[in-house]
Design a protein around this nucleic acid. Structure first.
Lengths: 202, 202
DNA sequence: GTACGATACGGACCAGTGGTCCGCTTCGGT
DNA sequence: ACCGAAGCGGACCACTGGTCCGTATCGTAC
């Protein structure tokens, strides 16, 4: 075993930090206004403990996001249809996107924090790479659909946290409306035949 | 006239600041690493001058972006087809998106800086509202196309600066490939009939 | 050309951030 | 009960966007 078991107080503090961060991020409007000192204070630990446990701010946000995402990840990796692996692509792709949208709606503050975490683009994270690969592989199994990679990017872009947050909070779009809109978009993209001519002729 | 003419040195310094910022943003990998002090030094002015001229960092980036965007704006507002106003929607929408993509490719550092400027979401800016309204209005004129508003969001999301930058710089996607992919996506969305049933039946 | 008020300059300065450091505390095996 | 290792925490640091105000410059009236 090269892995050391963490000490009891360390585990407790880590959990406290995650819980505190969760509460703070959920409560507040913009993730930028939550500082590491805030989280430390709310968790009743020192700031150093936070950085020891998570490395940096981005690490904390990632850890928190991963925790929340865990059930969905399970459902996708080994759950029953329509999310689980034994589902035909034409059915699984819309289900995945709907689940992702729902998740981001429920956790929009956290998702926004994640996507704007640090200076690096959200496209350079393992998290994004994972979702994109999953979607792209499924799209590639759908016959007559070109550019699976780009289509996957486009579909994921339609569920970006800040867009979802804008639609939900600023435009007051009801949850079911958004789900239907994304489902329609997905359907249109999956059903459409590959276009023959780039110009708008017919 | 309620507008005062700016003093000569003010105008010169403003131009110098824009030019310096342009150079710096273009050169560097991530916009975060360019500080206001850097720009001031490169422009040969004091930091206070920068803030006096542009208000804050976001204001400077916006001003710079607006300058670069000006030719495209002109072409869209009063130029000839296919960008100008006297163009049928089915032809103008793809043209607009292609122009936007091209512009963002050519100015990806600046566009990235703009979209991640400040704490506020890029969706709450006049700039985005303008593009979205333009696109939505055109989409609404296309018969048989539901959810013009959401479709406009989705199309614009596919041209977000960080995605474009990721495709161009990390995935090494050639320019023409990206243009074709976006054109295909647009065509698929515009040509597809409104789906009748949300489920994947036929 | 000169005098003079308005305008703009610029760098010292400030508040607040993420992140580090290290003397002190706590844990847990023996 | 002991003791080395692991963890703690808040003073501290480097650095950022943004402010302030004494000083320099501009443009105008004469």
């Amino acid at each position: 075993m090269t892995e050391r078991q963490p000490r009891k107080d360390a585990a407790r503090n880590r959990a406290a930090a995650l819980a505190a961060a969760d509460t703070l991020f959920t409560r507040c409007r913009s993730p930028e206004e939550i500082t590491m000192a805030d989280i430390a204070a709310a968790a009743g630990v020192g700031k150093g403990t936070l950085f020891r446990a998570f490395g940096d701010r981005t690490g904390l946000i990632r850890a928190l996001y991963a925790t929340r995402l865990e059930p969905l990840r399970q459902a996708i990796e080994q759950g029953p249809p329509p999310l689980g692996p034994h589902t035909p692509p034409l059915q699984r792709v819309p289900a995945l996107l709907d689940a992702l949208l729902t998740f981001k709606l429920d956790n929009r503050h956290l998702a926004t924090a994640l996507e704007s975490a640090g200076a690096d683009s959200p496209y350079r994270t393992d998290h994004y790479a994972h979702w994109h690969a999953l979607l792209r592989d499924l799209l590639e199994q759908i016959p007559g659909l070109a550019d699976a990679g780009f289509t996957a990017h486009a579909l994921l872009a339609a569920t970006r946290a800040d867009l979802v947050g804008h639609l939900a909070d600023d435009a007051r779009t009801p949850r079911e409306t958004m789900r239907r809109q994304l489902a329609d978009l997905t359907t249109r993209l999956l059903d459409a035949p590959a276009p023959r001519s780039p110009a708008a002729g017919d």
